[in-house]
């Protein structure tokens, strides 16, 4: 059935409003869209790594989750949800459960690219029937905007500050989506909030209803860390995609597929300019840094096109 935003939006909310996430944060629409991809009759056990999403949606005695939810620690949501899925498998085998449960783990880039990478890798390798969603806001936002291995090069963060000698973070962003694709699990997708959430929703549906482990890497901008105007959330995501900074693609059964090719690939400046974290790059003396970033994006885009047989 063709994607219909109105119909999808009419599905019941499984993460209610009233939580404490910031205005203009990408994470709540990511979670809500993913949970809407559940069939109405299905239940989910959701988990979150310690982070903004967790502390803002489950502050005792309130929870915004309408599905059963567990938070344990920062680095272990992959293992935690894999354990819940294992219990489900055993209880079904013993004939004690017949309800349809789905298992979804959410982690930020800190809890996924960095401290939780081992736990994630283990859970995926073991083949649990679960989805791991990284809402990638490209820094440790919950502790106050520290750099992670998901932070892009030259971004200004509180532990990779731009100063008189260094222009922000010194390393390129880790390509986690490709790392997860190298696990050769049934489904890996990279997406963000664009085009009425269509790409995100459809990938969530595939991820949830593909048997076995699935991984989704979702760019989820953070207005505090990225320093953009809160109403610009969707525009920033669109620019990430149209500049090919964050291409939309999926790897299904080992086949790489590009989901969106911009008609006109925009220069990286268009994406960086509205974000305060890159402001210093627009000083005259930093022109060569912009050129370096553009070159890197071009190289990675060409590489992706080759992998997706689009070159």
């Amino acid at each position: 059935m063709a994607y219909n935003l109105k119909q999808v939006m009419n599905k019941p909310e499984r993460l209610t409003g009233g939580h404490r996430m910031c205005a203009g944060c990408g994470a709540p629409p990511v979670v809500r869209t993913i949970l809407r991809a559940l069939k109405p009759e299905d239940h989910a056990v959701c988990g979150a790594a310690t982070g903004c999403l967790e502390v803002s949606t489950f502050l005792y005695p309130y929870t915004a989750w309408r599905e059963s939810f567990i938070h344990s620690a920062f680095e272990n949501v992959g293992a935690t949800i894999s354990g819940a899925e294992a219990a489900y498998t055993a209880l079904k085998r013993k004939g004690k459960m017949d309800d349809t449960y789905k298992f979804i783990a959410f982690g930020g880039d800190g809890g996924t690219y960095d401290i939780g990478l081992q736990s994630l890798s283990g859970a995926m390798e073991r083949g649990h029937d679960m989805v791991y969603v990284c809402y990638d806001n490209e820094a440790y936002m919950n502790t106050g905007i520290q750099r992670s291995s998901g932070t892009p090069k030259y971004a200004d963060t509180t532990t990779s500050p731009q100063g008189t000698v260094l222009p922000g973070k010194q390393q390129f962003k880790k390509d986690l989506t490709a790392v997860m694709a190298a696990h050769h699990i049934p489904y890996v997708a990279q997406t963000t909030l664009t085009s009425n959430f269509k790409d995100l929703y459809e990938k969530a549906e595939k991820a949830i209803y593909t048997k076995g482990p699935a991984f989704m890497n979702v760019l989820a901008p953070c207005p505090r860390g990225w320093r953009y105007d809160t109403p610009d959330l969707m525009a920033i995501c669109k620019l990430a995609v149209d500049t090919c900074v964050w291409p939309l693609y999926e790897v299904e059964g080992g086949v790489w597929k590009l989901n969106y090719k911009p008609k006109k690939k925009l220069p990286v400046e268009n994406y960086l300019e509205p974000q305060g974290r890159f402001k210093h790059l627009f000083n005259k003396e930093n022109k060569h840094l912009l050129e370096e970033l553009q070159k890197d994006i071009d190289m990675k885009w060409e590489d992706l096109l080759r992998r997706c047989n689009e070159a």
Partner: peptide, 19 residues
Amino acid sequence: VESEHSAMSACVGAQAAGG
């Protein structure tokens, strides 16, 4: 599991789930 940290984490998830 791939570590004891994940062993105990998986135990927490499994026991909380009802196993």
